[in-house]
Design a protein around this nucleic acid. Structure first.
Lengths: 152, 152
DNA sequence: GTGCCAATTCAAGTCGACTTGAAGTCAAGC
DNA sequence: GCTTGACTTCAAGTCGACTTGAATTGGCAC
């Protein structure tokens, strides 16, 4: 297994070096040493970064991901949390599916203004008033999650 | 149709008044006038806020949503953009589905450390190396989107 | 041995979407 | 008339995840 320069890691996983330093500072990855000033990474860091990316796209924050890697650096995942996150993800998926349908309908719909289309209004309502979204104290009926694909 | 005080709108749609003012400032909603200093909203604003919430959960930024409502205030949607967004959404859905599966597998898997499980590693790889993600100049292989459900 | 360019540190900046705080206004009920 | 509390404005703050800039160091090819 070759050791890697930060630049090589960056290239292999498509992240800027600044991000790698930032992740190291946060304890998400670690270098196995230095050559002079320069960090040296074990090749395994690439896979770890893949796992981090996976966590990110599952909606884990960097802090949560940092917890997933125990303080020893080993991957140690709380299975309950995983299942909870998977459930959350599935709910998001259902919501996004509804939204996608709504968008496709809106694109096809003849109504001059979409809000005049009863079907569209129904979809909007169903997307917003989600069953099981209980609000205590006037919170978040409309304030559900969002999916934000960033980048290209 | 009754007119609404900002507080009533806030209660009906579960958003803080500060957000409503912010949205008005951004041109996402408008009040139909003032009673003294106080904004007066038409009842329809609630539906509009629902549409905004829909757009948000579809991953539109507030600026994009502002464009969706033409300058006249009417809902005027570019059908191409809608379909493009729907496609993007579907891609996100597929990615999240993979991630959800990965999480459920990780939760069930016996391997002492997940990275030692070949199946998990395969899923991680497949979630990360997405087909069709082309990077020019060292960008974003790992840097795909993320879904972040906020709130309750 | 020397020059270059990638790496380093650290502080500060950015971005989107709001929130918070301070200070002031006013409609309505008593 | 006075109080109350929901409303108003405007500037500044927050949060997460990075990015950027300036000043410096030092590994490696020549």
């Amino acid at each position: 297994m070759r050791n890697l320069d930060i630049g090589e890691v960056a290239e292999q996983c498509g992240l800027p070096t600044s991000t790698l330093r930032f992740y190291e500072e946060k304890g998400l990855i670690q270098s196995i040493g230095r050559r002079g000033l320069r960090r040296v990474f074990a090749a395994g860091v690439v896979e770890r970064l893949a796992l981090i990316a996976l966590g990110r796209s599952a909606g884990f924050s960097l802090d949560e991901i940092a917890q997933i890697f125990g303080p020893d650096g080993r991957v140690r995942i709380d299975r309950k949390k995983l299942l909870a996150k998977a459930d959350e993800l599935d709910a998001t998926i259902r919501r996004l599916t509804t939204v996608s349908k709504a968008l496709r309908h809106a694109a096809a719909c003849k109504a001059p203004s979409h809000m005049e289309c009863p079907r569209f209004r129904r979809i909007v309502r169903s997307a917003v008033r989600r069953p099981g979204s209980r609000r205590k104290n006037g919170a978040s009926t409309l304030r559900n999650g969002r999916a934000r694909p960033r980048g290209t």
